[in-house]
Write a protein that binds this DNA or RNA. Structure first.
Ligand SMILES: [Mn+2]
Ligand SMILES: [Mn+2]
Length: 542
DNA sequence: ACACCAGAGG
DNA sequence: TTCACACGCTCCG
DNA sequence: GAGCGTGTGTCTCCTCTGGTGTCC
């Protein structure tokens, strides 16, 4: 209500923009239903189009006519008539009791079902009545006295498919348009060729939808039955299939269905699946197999994270199968110190307590966690991240290139990243970072945390962080963005006089270093970067 | 009477 | 649909 | 204390409102 746009039918204009964008780019891939919908939609009168878009954007698919009241549309029944005639909306849908309860308020339920205890909660009333009212009826049959109507949107799935084609995903929705218009979400504008689109063939769209349905089943706690068993030719979708298998395996593990989990993990190449497979074998008591798989993995770990996990599991598994312990390589222990502090009230968190205690005028301390280094990387490499690589950007609302987490993200932009990172050799990086910080401020980015990086922090970081270290961090990040974008220490302390820095991971009572934090600390140790772990204990106060 | 929250909105 | 912490359990030296 | 698993809070724009239930 606070913000206003000039056009009261802004949502209709946005939807029409999206439809024509999608129609232009997917002419060869649309199926009959989608084509029919677009044709039909374009022939509707404006009020009917607007009402349909309101329904598409709302929860649905069932709506009470009285709840579809819009000044800019006018009379709802008149606006709905063409939608009913075209079959886009059903005017007398059969409703089961659950659907009916979703549309009625308590007072209406009390009137319609006088026998049920009005003091019960709605869900309990539903439980009681459900056995007596198994059959579906139309709204006017349920409540003959009611003057209201119920409409059912019939084109929700078609619109979801068109939304998927437009965005290339299903987590973005049509509100992106208005949020961008209002400046609430701001996106980098990348040149998008008229041929750019998220999907290259019809089958990929169908596969995406199938995988998405499976994922929803998993999230609902169900056991997904129809995950595609064969590898997919599209690497992006194959990655999503693998992720799905991994989630299904975890689901089975949590349900203690170890045989099923074992079958799933055995066929799953997703990162981490092999380690889970070993754990499941161990939990089954199949120590020989667990050890064999772990030993084989140890010869060729898929990444550092798996190497860490294997290093913990292998000594135990060797013992289980009666092998002698192997000489363990000494784990490099990080430098540590302990603070004993009074526990502040109100309690701001252990990191802030430690920050405030360590802070000095000439050695300010910031609570940055992953935000600082990722942001500096995102600023220096802005042009490479948002380079108009074919297929990476295909609509105006990309926070990141579509292939950010694909294996060939870096190879496809090698020259651009070289150009960005080479500025760390010449000293030009400081001005580039400052300029991006100014020019791109507030734009969505997969790396830059605008709210965390103020001018003071930025200048201190540029003063005190040596470019050699920035280069090592950024290169490591580019090697594996998913794995290396997190795990950085809580605090950073800048020695303004000496132009030095130190990173400090804060650990409160009971907290321990996590795997990604250990990997980060080990990396820093290898390259002579200062990191310490600060253990905080609370001063007893009676 | 009040707190909470899901949904709607720009 | 992330990331980090809090916390409880088992096992083992 | 190490190793492991699970639960939780804070994020997803922010504000307003109608409806629910007495709390999560
Ligand atoms: Mn932290
Ligand atoms: Mn910490």
């Amino acid at each position: 209500m606070a913000r206003t746009l000039d056009n009261p039918l802004y949502y209709l204009a946005n939807f029409e923009r999206a439809m024509s964008w999608t129609g232009e780019r997917y002419g060869d891939l649309l199926d009959e239903r989608e084509r029919a919908f677009l044709d039909c939609f374009n022939r509707l009168p404006p009020a009917a189009r607007a009402l349909l878009v309101r329904m598409v954007m709302r929860k649905g698919p069932l709506f009470r006519e009285s709840k579809l009241a819009y000044d800019e549309i006018g009379d709802t029944r008149a606006a709905a008539a063409p939608l009913l005639a075209a079959g886009l909306v059903d005017e007398r849908p059969a409703l089961n009791l659950d659907q009916l309860f979703g549309l009625l308020v308590r007072s209406e339920i009390a009137q319609a079902f006088p026998g049920v205890d009005a003091a019960l909660r709605k869900a309990e009333q539903l439980e009681r009545l459900r056995p007596q009212w198994p059959q579906a009826r139309c709204f006017d049959e349920w409540l003959p006295a009611a003057r209201d109507r119920v409409y059912a949107l019939r084109v929700g799935e078609v619109c979801d498919r068109l939304r998927l084609m437009f965005f290339g995903n299903l987590h973005q929705d049509w509100t992106e348009f208005v949020l961008a218009d209002l400046g609430i979400l701001r996106y980098e504008q990348v040149d998008i060729s008229p041929a750019s689109r998220g999907f290259g063939c019809r089958e990929d769209i169908e596969v995406y939808l199938r995988l998405h349905a499976c994922r929803e089943q998993i999230e609902a706690g169900a056991i997904p039955a129809d995950i595609p068993q064969q590898p997919l030719s599209n690497a992006w979708l194959e990655g999503r299939r693998q992720k799905l298998l991994f989630l299904a395996g975890q689901q089975q593990e949590r349900a203690a269905e170890f045989a099923a989990a074992r079958r799933i993990y055995a066929a799953c190449r997703h990162e981490g699946a092999r380690a889970r497979h070993i754990r499941v074998l161990e939990k089954c008591g199949d120590h020989e197999q667990a050890h064999a798989l772990a030993a084989a993995a140890w010869m060729q770990p898929e990444n550092e994270a798996e190497r860490q996990q294997l290093a913990r599991m292998l000594p135990r598994l060797r013992r289980r199968v009666g092998l002698p312990p192997e000489a363990a390589p000494p784990a490099a222990a990080p430098e540590e110190f302990t603070l004993v502090l009074p526990r502040p009230v109100p309690f701001p968190g252990v990191e802030l307590a430690a920050r405030d205690h360590l802070w000095r005028e000439d050695a300010p301390v910031h609570y940055v966690e992953n935000t600082l280094i990722n942001s500096l990387f995102g600023l220096l490499c802005w042009d490479a991240v948002f380079a108009a690589v074919p297929g990476a950007f295909f609509h105006p609302f990309h926070a990141a290139p579509a292939d950010l987490h694909s294996a060939d993200f870096l190879p496809r932009r090698a020259a651009a990243f070289d150009t960005c990172l080479s500025q760390l050799d010449s000293g030009a990086y400081r001005d580039t970072i400052r300029r991006r910080h100014r020019e791109k401020s507030g734009l969505q980015s997969p790396f830059v945390y605008w709210e965390a990086i103020g001018d003071t922090l930025l200048e201190q970081a540029l003063d005190c962080l040596p470019p050699e270290h920035l280069k090592l961090w950024f290169t490591r990040l580019l090697q594996d963005i998913r794995a290396n974008r997190a795990g950085m220490p809580d605090l950073i302390r800048f020695d303004l006089r000496e132009r030095r820095y130190e990173m400090i991971e804060v650990k409160g009572p009971g907290d321990r270093l996590q795997d990604n934090q250990l990997r980060w600390i080990a990396f820093c140790a290898r390259h002579g970067m200062p990191v310490r772990v600060c253990h905080v204990r609370w001063l007893e106060q009676e």
